[in-house]
Design a protein around this nucleic acid. Structure first.
Lengths: 359, 359
DNA sequence: CTGTTAGCGCATTCAC
DNA sequence: GTGAATGCGCTAACAG
């Protein structure tokens, strides 16, 4: 590239062009661009004028090379679907913007190996990592370069890596207490996928609260995978059983809705014969019939909180934040059979003013 | 930085370290790293060994500075919710990975000004832009630096910017033809938000097909905003009208489901008294009662196709791709009142094997 | 307050 | 086949 530099692909104006045009040194231009104080008003004005006129924009890579800062964080997500994904990103994006961080996204990771590859690809471009690894198997996460700060969401992390999670365990116990308070005795549970952290925590909460509140009661568990279809199948199975439960706590709303559809098809009254509840409070939860009682977890806050923590960690790498937890909130609608004092049949979607899907 | 360079923040091994350790020049290391042929097997072996041992990873910024390539594309999204968002990202991410591109995401743009700011922040870091700008007002998009290749999705773009879109117009007409074929005459429409490209196209399709198939028929339109709540309100309004329609074509599934809930609350039989259809085919569409007839649009393909086009554009900036379109497909379930030959009541969610929400 | 200059880490000519 | 040297665009010492 010595003699005849190959035609620069996107030849754009550099700091040198500005300096020459404004009759100053690149140092002064740099100072103005970075908002340093030590520049004469007149000089600053002249430089600013040229910058505007030439539409000069600092070259990011060059700046990074010099400052060792990229202002980017990497976000590693598994193969996620639906509302959870979008709300998480929404929270992450908003918080990142506030911190002046850009988001390098890598989603759709089926397994830990893929995730490791993604991490490698991000090496050097990001100042921190945000990872959602619901797989119980987190051994592969150990390969993360220890140098870069990382925050784990809804993951079981060995060691004291700073993490943040929805309190699935506590939420499940709360839901069970509610069902029991409603008078239900035989309460079944539809689980999420095996090897999923939250699914595991919710099941554990179900079992523990059952054992605590109804000593001797036998847990009744059907395996699902968080999909509507699996909830549908579970609903059929449960309704057909000899010991038919009088309440079903599904591991998430999607399965609860699938279960509802199955019971409806079978002519089983909900909540009359069997009560059904979910977890997550997806936007549609208030619009199915009967409206779904569920635990509301603020996914937006999960994403936002994770970024806040990561930003703090980037600023102070030595800071030792303890793991934190977000408590879900019980949302009582109709499917649980709780007697309600209100008389309105309008769906309760007080929060979330606008819910759109189409672009 | 002349005398005593400040302690490098994330001191990591550089190409120089490798060169020194392997007793070669940085040029050879560079050749090996970039897979050039002209390196002796023995030399290559030695270098490779050192690279592994030192865990050397090329510094991205430095490489970018020198090559003028970042291998990143910017994705600009509006304030999106739900399934649409996640599927779009899924498609984008998968395709980007195939093309060896990283995704710099920036979402939650309420208006064009915010989007312009996001573009500015990405300037220089991305080789191309993917933008979803459903706002009808695209004047602000003109500010995009013309130098960087861009692909627009579901947007009305003046000029011949390469774009890709779901054929909302054609889909709406197809849906209307279906409703008419089912014997419905008074067909109402619930629109999406004003100033939204797809909402506009669907309404246009509704009006055009109505005029074409039933000359003289009077269009009956209620304004919605793509949210379940607005669909609920529209359903109430429609049911209360003197000239009650016998079919309702909602601008998207969320509103259709809201409408369904309203009619259920009012005791109006669906599809008996009023048929209801939607647009999008969200995963839950098959699980509400009655199961929703809708138009299936492959959002994943939208994202994937957009990235493919962008990658092509980056490779050949001069290439003039024409705008392309993705045709949605009619999915007939129960809510439209079509007589069905099958006898299965199981939800039809043949495709989409797994649908999860929770992490 | 301003200019000069030395790197940041890497790719790439051009001699050898 | 290999190495020495140059420049990518910018920041931050340092000298003036």
């Amino acid at each position: 590239m010595a003699r005849r530099p190959l035609a620069r692909p996107h030849a754009s104006t550099t700091i040198n062009d500005v300096a020459r045009e404004a009759q100053v040194s690149v140092a002064s231009v740099s100072r103005v661009v970075n908002g340093h104080a030590n520049v004469l008003p007149e000089t600053r004005r002249r430089i600013t004028e040229v910058i505007d006129r030439l539409r000069y924009v600092p070259h990011t890579a060059a700046r990074s090379l010099s400052t060792r800062r990229t202002h980017m964080i990497g976000v590693l997500l598994p193969d996620l679907h639906g509302e959870f994904f979008s709300e998480l990103i929404r929270g992450i994006d908003a918080a990142a913007r506030e911190h002046g961080l850009q988001v390098l996204l890598s989603s759709s990771h089926g397994d830990a190996a893929e995730m490791a590859a993604a991490v490698r690809a991000m090496h050097g471009r990001v100042e921190g990592l945000l990872v959602l690894a619901p797989q119980l198997d987190t051994t592969a996460l150990r390969e993360l370069p220890p140098a870069v700060p990382a925050v784990f969401m809804n993951s079981r992390v060995a060691g004291r890596t700073p993490s943040l999670a929805i309190d699935s365990y506590g939420g499940a116990r709360a839901m069970l207490r509610h069902l029991i308070a409603c008078g239900h005795r035989a309460i079944a549970h539809i689980t999420g996928p095996t090897n999923n952290f939250d699914a595991h925590e919710r099941e554990r909460g179900y079992r523990d609260e059952l054992a605590a509140s109804q000593p001797g009661a036998r847990p009744q568990v059907v395996r699902g995978d968080f999909s509507e279809t699996s909830g549908y199948a579970a609903g059929r199975a449960l309704a057909a059983q000899a010991a038919r439960p009088d309440a079903v706590f599904a591991g998430n709303d999607a399965m609860a809705i699938g279960c509802l559809a199955a019971l409806d098809a079978l002519g089983v009254a909900v909540p009359g014969e069997i009560a059904v509840t979910g977890f997550d409070d997806i936007p549609l939860a208030g619009f199915v019939r009967p409206a779904l009682t569920t635990m509301r977890a603020s996914i937006v806050e999960l994403g936002r909180g994770a970024v806040d923590r990561l930003a703090g960690l980037i600023a102070q790498p030595d800071a030792r934040l303890a793991a934190a937890t977000l408590s879900p909130e019980l949302v009582i609608r109709e499917s649980c059979g709780a007697k309600r004092s209100g008389r309105s049949r309008a769906p309760s979607s007080s929060r979330r003013p606008r819910r759109r899907r189409s672009p």
